[in-house]
Design a protein around this nucleic acid. Structure first.
Lengths: 214, 214
DNA sequence: CAGTTACGCTACGGGTCGTAGCGTAAGAGC
DNA sequence: GCTCTTACGCTACGACCCGTAGCGTAACTG
């Protein structure tokens, strides 16, 4: 699915020439290609427009700033994330880690992700866009894996009361920060690959660690 | 200490007017102030020069690119990191987490760190500069904390052979990615504070997790 | 058909990067 | 003291990019 465009109203416009979805796709494809070829530093709106065979003004009718375009261009890659049931919490965590790792080793995401996060520190709207377009898609997997582990009895169920729900949300957030943060750091700062051996060790740490979290 | 300037030769220049160390400091101070006020996006070399009371060309005689200046400006903050012995591995990990957290909550680091990491994905020289100026300073604490835990008997000592040393280095790298990555993600992506409760939970996970790492 | 919106195109203002050239200031070595 | 060498300030500049304005045309709705 395509994320909400900034200039589109919630209520559908019924009249006039409609936006070309083909153009939408061409722009996002061109943006990813430009990220691969140029990285974030030399990525320019004019270049993306040329690659997409589209006027530069057409880009600005859809996205107010280039960082928003980049978020949407990269976000679709996070839709590919899924978490098949591998039978145990340990195996499921390894699966998530490897999925994040593979995604972050792609040059598009490697070039774009930290750049937009950096700009989001001084741009609340961008931070929200990143949250809904990218972060929530990752968090899904954590929530899903945790539910499965609870069904298997590997993790205790959440208390149904209000405090229990809040504690559960905090735990999910913590786990998510650990997994996503560690994989990002490994890939972008340490600049080393996320292979199966490393994923297994990280999964082991998390598994044992979660058991000790009262 | 001040990191190596890009235009300075390894062998000391003996003749001519020496670089003003006072100017060095003024520029780095101005750069941090500019990061606080403007963030990375509006940070400009001309602005830094004006704040430092210095010509813009003087900046470029010391740093080839603005990202390198920013790395050096932020790097000195990481010199403040230290790890007093708190008596147990659990307490020491909490200490590291809180230190990283406090550092990353400062607006200078928040604005600069991810920006330069993003640019380092397409700039090997910058990546190396980040490594020596920032990453190694953080890693120190992990190495130190681990050694203390081994002296206390909380962690098994490293085998003295070659494979043992390599495994130890990998483990240190993994722990470091977990701690630094998780704190960064918490601070910059989830945009939530690193408080003592959260630090304790993360430390607990790590402590239990390390125990289970064969 | 008319009305409305999307699109392409050109041109532009404002801003930043990073450099060149020149005259001057400040030390090192004699 | 003097000379040599380098740092510094200043001005100007080319190149590039962002994001916008204006206008004519295309496409779709009712």
């Amino acid at each position: 699915m395509v994320a909400r465009m900034p200039h589109s109203c919630p209520r559908k416009r019924r009249t006039g020439r409609p936006r070309s979805v083909e153009t939408d796709r061409a722009i996002l494809d061109a943006a990813r290609a430009a990220l691969v070829d140029l990285g974030w530093g030399r990525f320019t709106m004019g270049d993306v427009a040329a690659r997409a065979g589209v006027a530069k003004t057409t880009l600005y009718r859809r996205w107010a700033h280039k960082n928003e375009l980049v978020v949407d261009a990269v976000a679709v890659l996070f839709d590919e994330l899924e978490l098949p049931d591998r039978g145990s919490l340990q195996a499921d965590i390894e699966g998530v880690v490897l999925q994040f790792g593979r995604l972050l080793e792609r040059p598009e995401t490697k070039a774009a992700l930290m750049a937009v996060v950096a700009e989001s520190t001084t741009d609340a709207a961008l931070r929200e866009r990143i949250r809904t377009a990218i972060v929530d898609r990752q968090m899904r997997l954590v929530v899903l894996g945790r539910e499965r582990a609870q069904e298997r009895g590997e993790l205790p169920p959440d208390p149904p009361d209000h405090d229990g729900a809040r504690a559960a949300a905090e735990t999910v957030g913590l786990i998510f920060d650990v997994i996503a943060g560690t994989v990002v750091h490994r890939t972008l700062v340490s600049a080393e690959p996320v292979d199966t051996v490393w994923a297994r060790r990280l999964a082991t740490i998390l598994l044992e660690g979660l058991a000790g979290l009262d």
